[in-house]
Design a binder for these strands. Structure first.
Lengths: 230, 230
DNA sequence: GGCATGCTTCGGCATGGACCGAAGCATGGC
DNA sequence: GCCATGCTTCGGTCCATGCCGAAGCATGCC
């Protein structure tokens, strides 16, 4: 009975066109700002704010503040699965996975750059994805941990995992500006970045945060992470 | 965009407490009458009627008229999957699969009985389920077909499949009164019923539609269909 | 400090839709 | 034929909620 009410409540949240629009825009796992979501839904910021608050309260969205922006993303994979199941019934079929482009205009910078002391852009996100997919790190919103498999992998790369008590701060997710997804920051991100420079896999573009992946880097990244940057 | 609207519309249908209640009651695949659904939702018949019309129009439910009753059930497995996914997010966990009991009060009659010229009750539904699960028949609302594998199976049982042009009428689903699910009717259902009597698997209770499964029947049904009637 | 930007809260309006009472069709049983 | 039952359609009420304008906090840039 209460199960009925909970189901209805959740479904009703998805049942509003504006909210459905926003959720749909988040289907690819990226995080978008409240303003962007208001824009895609075609409503004003204040209306969107109310919707986002309700979606977060119900556990459909997770929010992360970064400066004066608030980034929203789907709270769990279960939410994405639910939305997909609804679309299936609605006759829309599987999601179209449309390519949207926002963020830094410079293509090279979007591809790979430094963010403070670690790698960001497509390269940074790809490294984080690869390590997470292989169970080498486990990322959470508030922090992350390096698994035993990850320690072994890092050692093989020539990176000494911080054995001290600062394990938690060692692996920290950071929201990527252009990709709107997490990449690795913290001590781990810094160490990976440093090592990539040492190995000659990437090199800096003068007077810029942009970095370029070298020929050796393409091979090395492919071998180490299974990464293929188009 | 239109995909968004369709998703919102579908979700909104589930988003009403009364409708969610009705859909939930249908989660186990049974078919219930409009009156029963109104009752479980705690609303009047006329209100339920409106809800059911909308759910059917949207393709969430399928309707089947039998006498002056109208039986409603989930239109496709995709709808059940969607509801389950929503419940997952709503925190209700997987559906409880509650056992509800309506229909004939007589336990033996609920277990097995004849329906016109074929078997019904738990036995009839179990036979239909078993044959469908094994790909021996393919059941649709308006009719069904016996597959080549089904022909072979029936031959082994000593039943000659009707080789004439009346194949379609040969295999016909019939909505079970107590189980609220389909069992096999038509020529196939009649033949199966006759053969079960011939083999001594079931015998009639005098002056009643109720039939009893014999000891030989328990063994035979288990071997032929993999059926285990608790 | 002052200003701009991003987001939230508050108040009031308006539309949508859930609900029921009453009446209208079907179907089945007598 | 009649009546009972199950369901639907129609009409009207009422509440929930989505929406925006205006104002109020935060944060970042100068």
């Amino acid at each position: 009975m209460s199960s009925n009410a909970a189901m209805a409540e959740t479904a009703a949240l998805v049942g509003d066109p504006a909210r459905a629009c926003m959720l749909n825009a988040l289907m690819d796992g990226r995080a978008l700002t409240a303003g962007e979501l208001a824009s895609v839904a075609g409503i004003t910021a204040q209306t969107a704010s109310g919707h986002l608050a309700r979606l977060s309260a119900a556990g459909l969205l997770a929010m992360e503040r970064q400066g004066r922006h608030r980034y929203h993303r789907l709270a769990t994979p279960a939410v994405a699965r639910m939305l997909e199941a609804i679309m299936m019934v609605a006759g829309g079929g599987p999601p179209p996975a449309r390519p949207r482009r926002i963020g830094p205009a410079d293509a090279a910078m979007r591809n790979a750059r430094t963010c403070y002391d670690h790698l960001a852009g497509r390269l940074g996100v790809a490294i984080a994805d690869a390590m997470a997919a292989r169970g080498q790190v486990e990322l959470a919103t508030d922090g992350g941990v390096v698994t035993p498999a990850g320690v072994e992998f890092l050692t093989g790369l020539g990176i000494a995992p911080d054995a001290g008590g600062s394990r938690r701060a060692f692996c920290k997710p950071c929201l990527d500006w252009s990709e709107r997804r997490h990449h690795l920051a913290g001590g781990l991100g810094a160490a990976l970045c440093t090592r990539c420079f040492e190995l000659g896999w990437v090199k800096r573009v003068p007077a810029s945060r942009t970095v370029l992946v070298t020929r050796a880097g393409e091979a090395g990244l492919r071998q180490a992470f299974g990464i293929e940057l188009g």
